[in-house]
Deep mutational scan, measured.
Amino acid sequence: LYHVLGLDKNATSDDIKKSYRKLALKYHPDKNPDNPEAADKFKEINNAHAILTDATKRNIYD
């Protein structure tokens, strides 16, 4: 999941948040209406963010 956000395992919560915002804006379906690959990437980014920002889920993942 870290690679989805372009981060390593030592990433801080701020790093995760910044990377998520940058990538979410880039791949958001509203910005890429005719690109199904961007929509899939956006879903991956959201999933990675949801797990890595939840301390319990992140510990389980790590």
Score class of each variant (00 low, 15 high):
51 I>N: 07
53 T>G: 14
53 T>D: 11
8 D>W: 01
55 A>Q: 13
38 A>F: 09
12 T>V: 02
53 T>A: 11
50 A>K: 11
60 I>Q: 15
9 K>N: 05
8 D>P: 14
50 A>I: 06
11 A>C: 09
48 A>L: 00
7 L>A: 07
16 I>K: 04
1 L>K: 07
38 A>E: 09
20 Y>V: 07
37 E>N: 14
33 P>S: 11
48 A>H: 03
5 L>Y: 02
43 K>N: 08
25 L>H: 04
39 A>L: 13
17 K>I: 11
27 Y>I: 01
42 F>S: 08
24 A>V: 14
27 Y>W: 15
43 K>T: 14
7 L>Y: 00
55 A>P: 12
51 I>T: 12
32 N>P: 01
12 T>W: 00
48 A>F: 00
32 N>Q: 13
61 Y>P: 15
38 A>K: 06
49 H>Y: 08
34 D>G: 14
24 A>T: 13
44 E>L: 03
30 D>V: 09
58 R>F: 02
2 Y>E: 11
37 E>L: 09
53 T>I: 07
54 D>W: 00
4 V>K: 01
58 R>N: 11
1 L>A: 11
20 Y>C: 09
2 Y>A: 03
17 K>L: 09
7 L>G: 02
15 D>Y: 00
28 H>L: 03
43 K>M: 15
58 R>P: 11
57 K>G: 05
25 L>G: 07
29 P>M: 05
48 A>R: 00
10 N>R: 03
9 K>S: 11
54 D>T: 03
22 K>H: 15
58 R>M: 03
22 K>S: 15
8 D>F: 03
27 Y>M: 09
20 Y>F: 15
29 P>G: 05
49 H>L: 07
17 K>M: 11
26 K>V: 10
57 K>M: 04
60 I>H: 10
55 A>D: 03
39 A>K: 14
47 N>S: 08
4 V>L: 07
37 E>K: 13
60 I>A: 15
18 K>Y: 06
52 L>S: 03
9 K>C: 08
9 K>R: 11
28 H>C: 07
18 K>W: 08
12 T>H: 06
13 S>E: 13
58 R>C: 04
26 K>C: 06
56 T>Y: 04
46 N>G: 11
35 N>C: 04
61 Y>G: 15
52 L>A: 07
50 A>M: 11
18 K>V: 11
17 K>C: 06
19 S>P: 03
13 S>N: 13
21 R>G: 14
13 S>G: 05
16 I>C: 04
59 N>G: 14
3 H>L: 05
35 N>P: 04
61 Y>C: 12
6 G>T: 00
43 K>S: 12
4 V>C: 12
61 Y>S: 15
26 K>F: 05
59 N>V: 11
45 I>Q: 04
10 N>G: 09
19 S>Y: 07
4 V>R: 01
15 D>A: 12
3 H>K: 10
38 A>V: 09
29 P>S: 10
24 A>W: 15
25 L>I: 11
3 H>D: 03
30 D>A: 14
23 L>V: 03
3 H>C: 10
37 E>M: 08
46 N>L: 10
24 A>C: 15
42 F>G: 07
37 E>Q: 14
55 A>E: 12
42 F>V: 09
20 Y>T: 08
13 S>A: 11
54 D>L: 02
43 K>Q: 15
20 Y>A: 14
17 K>Y: 03
38 A>I: 12
15 D>W: 07
31 K>P: 05
20 Y>E: 15
40 D>T: 14
38 A>Y: 10
7 L>D: 06
48 A>D: 10
62 D>V: 01
10 N>H: 03
43 K>L: 11
12 T>C: 08
57 K>N: 02
4 V>E: 05
1 L>N: 15
3 H>I: 04
61 Y>I: 10
53 T>H: 11
14 D>Q: 05
22 K>Y: 08
26 K>E: 14
37 E>V: 14
11 A>T: 02
12 T>Y: 00
2 Y>M: 04
30 D>P: 05
50 A>L: 05
49 H>G: 12
44 E>A: 10
43 K>A: 15
5 L>N: 14
2 Y>L: 01
49 H>E: 05
12 T>F: 00
56 T>I: 04
39 A>P: 07
43 K>D: 13
